[in-house]
């Protein structure tokens, strides 16, 4: 089924105003209101003729600093200065966060994309892990790396980072850490490497090996 036809069924179920359709040559998607996402997903999975049995991918997105004009002028992420200290910025992040759901139906062989957008300070969305079990880890990952909370998630822990990690690295305003558990994390150039050989160390043999 074509995305537009799927969207028409979806919006008939959710009612006017709960979802918007964004036409695109490469990938069209439906922008759904945050409160109705679980309802929409359940409808897409259970309706005969749609049967989206598989959640292919669930991605957290930080839209902060996105260049809407498509000129590639988005705000750059923070890295490390030349001397190895973390970069800082006075800019206050105010962009929205988002989630994208990519669905696939094995029985009908069609795909569909749902997207959410919500303000940064209200980063909580209903879970879909009771609809697709695979969402459990995907949502844990989105919480871990993007800082989006999933309400009703049975196991809302971090998954890739350790429990005591501070911050969510994929946020655009994430500042690189200076150290972790007293291990310096400074991205120093090789010349400043504290473990580099001393100046008076015997010179190595630079000639390439034979053969």
């Amino acid at each position: 089924m074509e995305p537009k036809a799927i969207f028409d069924l979806l919006t008939a179920h959710l009612g006017e105003g709960a979802a918007e359709y964004r036409e695109n040559d490469i990938e069209s998607w439906a922008c759904v209101s945050v409160a109705r996402i679980a309802d929409a997903c359940r409808f897409l999975r259970d309706t005969e003729g749609l049967e989206f049995g598989q959640l292919m991918c669930l991605s957290g997105i930080d839209w902060d600093g996105y260049d809407e004009n498509g000129k590639g002028k988005s705000v750059a992420i923070l890295g490390y200065e030349a001397d190895g200290t973390p970069e800082t910025s006075d800019r206050v992040a105010d962009g929205e966060l988002g989630v994208a759901y990519h669905l696939y139906s094995h029985t009908c062989d069609h795909k569909f994309t749902l997207r959410l957008r919500f303000p940064r300070d209200k980063a909580t969305v209903p879970t879909v892990s009771d609809i697709w079990s695979t969402a459990r880890w995907h949502e844990r990952e989105a919480w871990d790396l993007m800082g989006i909370r999933f309400e009703g998630h049975p196991d809302p822990r971090r998954i890739l980072l350790s429990e005591d990690w501070v911050g969510h690295p994929l946020r655009k305003d994430y500042q690189m850490p200076d150290q972790w558990l007293n291990v310096p994390l400074r991205g120093q150039p090789y010349a400043n490497n504290p473990f580099a050989p001393a100046d008076d160390a015997p010179a190595g043999d630079d000639t390439p090996a034979e053969g």
Partner: peptide
């Protein structure tokens, strides 16, 4: 975003 690096 139209640039040479991916936005996400």
């Amino acid at each position: 975003d139209g640039g040479t690096k991916p936005f996400r």
